[in-house]
Amino acid sequence: MDISWAMRMYARSFRGALDCRCILYLGSLNIMPAPTIPYAPRYVPGPATKEDMDWADLPIIDFSKVGTPEGRAELTPAMRDGMHTHGFVYIINHGLTQPQRDRMFDIADVAFAQVPEDEKKQFTANFKETGLYSGYKLRQYWHIDNGVRDQIEHFNTNRQIYGRDIYPKALQPFLPEMRAFAEYNHYNILHPILRLLALGMELPEEIFVDMHKFEAPGETWLRMMKYYPRSEEDETNSKNVWLKGHTDFGTITILWSQPVTALQILSHDGKWRWIRHIDNALVVNIGDAMELLSGGFYKGTIHRVVQPPADQRGRERLGVFYFALADDGVRLVPRVESPVLQRVGVQRRVADGDAPTMETLRRARTAAYGTSTLKRRADGHEEEELAGMTVKHFN
């Protein structure tokens, strides 16, 4: 097992300033005669599909170039156009190797395969009361359609990892690695994305980065998520939809690509197209908060999860995500000083004076999702009013 990846992630994400817990942890790795990291059973996903699918044609952004001003200038047009047109892009060469990525999926599976059901219940989040994704969401919490409830488990933790008593015993040995992974996502992936998005709007490079401070009050979270196979009856009654069409409510979602195909985006021509798996790539999308901050220039694209293709049916689907939200106090108003917005115009979903803070939007969306009563629209889709805005759900 490669132990150096955790050390490199700590060093890079802290930019040379490690906290005491991390120093002690990494120091123990260096001084032990036979350095080890906690054992996690190897998670082996199914093979990629061989079916002929209607794949979405998304830009691929090479992050090996993102570390220099010249590289960011080269990457900015592709990121700008991809997030303006599609709201989704792939990122490759982000700095972690395939084995390092695989280790995090091993840890993610511990949260589900190695934790007894009774213990999961002890750490189940109370979304409705707290408006926080913190702990487990167990299966059958969300209503999908026609009486069908979800078969999805996920475990969420705030990006800072430490400071909340939400961890089952099996996950506790992995907290240093989870912290390192969260920091890597935050500093080495999220912040460079935010710089490219700012440059794409001809804004100061750090303007969105300054709204996403790692230690600030806020609820950016690391999510481990597993979809379980469903009965044929549930597939029929839900029209094969596992998670109905929606936009994310944060700023940026980072999904670590995995081979069980199920994610689709709604293209501009009204067709659902599949997201292709690329080994050790990231699938990155815009959320509602960034759409609000960008005055509609960057699009929160509608996406859903459906039954996998025939050669992957019956398989579990394990995912690892980094859901980025702006700091709690950030008011989600358009950056109208952007020369780009001054040329193309601002698209508002709510008047500037009524714009919610990130905390207000987060609490409303977290508490309501999958449990609130929705209004059926004439086109068959559904909607609700949350945080002063109309939120649509696409069936």
Rank of each mutant, 00 (worst) to 15 (best):
R376Y: 01
Y167A: 06
Y227G: 02
S4T: 14
Y369P: 01
H143T: 03
V241K: 01
A6Y: 05
E219L: 02
R365S: 00
V44C: 10
K121F: 03
G67F: 11
M79E: 02
S257A: 12
D150T: 00
L318I: 02
P259Y: 10
K375E: 10
P41F: 04
W242K: 02
D248C: 04
P192H: 05
G218T: 03
I207T: 14
A48S: 15
R377P: 02
K226P: 03
E316G: 09
S13H: 12
A378R: 08
P356D: 07
Y187Q: 15
I302W: 00
D248K: 02
T253H: 02
E129Y: 00
G27Q: 11
N126Q: 08
F208T: 04
Y90I: 10
I60S: 13
I207V: 15
D54T: 12
V330T: 08
Q151T: 07
R8E: 15
F14A: 14
F105E: 13
M201S: 09
P173D: 14
N126R: 05
R159D: 09
T36Y: 13
R195T: 09
L332C: 06
P334T: 12
V110D: 11
V340I: 15
V320S: 02
Y25S: 09
R304M: 00
D57S: 15
E119Q: 15
L292T: 10
L24P: 08
A289T: 04
D165Y: 03
I166V: 14
F105D: 13
D269K: 09
I31H: 14
L292W: 09
I107F: 12
T236E: 12
V110L: 12
L132N: 05
M211Q: 14
R377T: 03
G27T: 11
P334L: 07
R72N: 05
N188L: 10
T247Q: 12
Y25P: 07
T371R: 05
V284P: 11
H303P: 02
I286R: 03
A113E: 11
A216P: 14
F174E: 11
G270D: 07
A216Y: 13
E183C: 10
D379V: 07
K121I: 06
V320P: 03
A289R: 01
A40Q: 07
F297L: 12
V320R: 00
D165N: 14
F155T: 01
F127R: 00
E117W: 03
E183R: 15
P45T: 11
M224E: 04
A170L: 06
M201N: 07
D288M: 07
I91L: 13
H268I: 11
G329P: 08
D379C: 06
Y167G: 05
P308M: 05
D165K: 08
P173C: 15
I91N: 07
I166R: 01
P47F: 09
R230D: 02
A125K: 00
S64K: 13
I23L: 13
K375Y: 05
E177Q: 10
Y25R: 10
P308Q: 04
M358E: 05
D288C: 05
K392T: 01
G295Q: 13
L318G: 00
D165W: 03
K120H: 10
